[in-house]
Amino acid sequence: MLALYFVLIGARIRSQMQYKFSFIADFFATFIGMGLEFAGTLVLFTHMPALGGWTLPEVALLYGTVELSFALANMIAEGFDSLSNVIRLGEFDRFLLRPRDVFFQVLASEFAMRRIGRVAQAVLVLGAGLWLLQADWGLERWLFLGWTVLGGTVFFIGLFVIGATFAFWTIEGLETVNIFTHGGVTMASYPLNIFAEWMRNFFVFVLPLAFVNFYPALFLLEKPDPFGLPGFMPFLAFPLCSLVLFVGAAFWRVGVRHYQSTGS
């Protein structure tokens, strides 16, 4: 199955690389354009020494990890992002006819190479942050950082799957999911402790966004938990992020069973 995935994705990537000029133009557009989002934070830091007790390099670590996770998830889960179009055009039936798992097919149907610009700017900000922090970490912390990014990617793929599944009922995609995906990224780009209590509680206890980067960053930077929760919280990060994908996959199965074809 994994081999098949790489065959299909490889074909996708090659086809997107056919238009070299437009690929490069798109890369720089996204790289610079998305990077300007962080320029906003830089401007704010010219007026203050730290934000909610977090210095600029520390905020760069938060921003870099969540952006990287989100951009990777966006690349991988593109098939789910465009699912509502597939359903509306009545093309989803085709997936059901093939002798492979539907979830796998949708996952392997698209790979958004064009999002690489966003990945690159996230890596740049993350790298700059780590460099300014002069992170003198042992191997286990570097591994933990990689593990964190992976967890965040799994988390956002889970959210994309949940968002896409609604399309089985509503045909149109559900725009409110943007609050959790794009809103989640924006929120997680800043220290969670600057937001209102109800928002924090929601993103710690209901949707575990806090575990995408905030708790892992507390561990990496050896900062005390502003909410006074137990010290093992950072280590729940990966399991909780996986849980989101697990819930998404379960919801997906319900959605597929509910699918009624459209079109004529």
Binding site: S22, I24, A25, F28, A29, I32, G33
Partner: peptide, 19 residues
């Protein structure tokens, strides 16, 4: 002038949000 001007469009859009 350009067959695929999506990149130009995306750039124009994203720069707008900051500047």
């Amino acid at each position: 002038w350009f067959l695929d001007a999506m990149g130009i469009g995306r750039f124009a859009w994203l720069t707008m949000t900051f500047f």
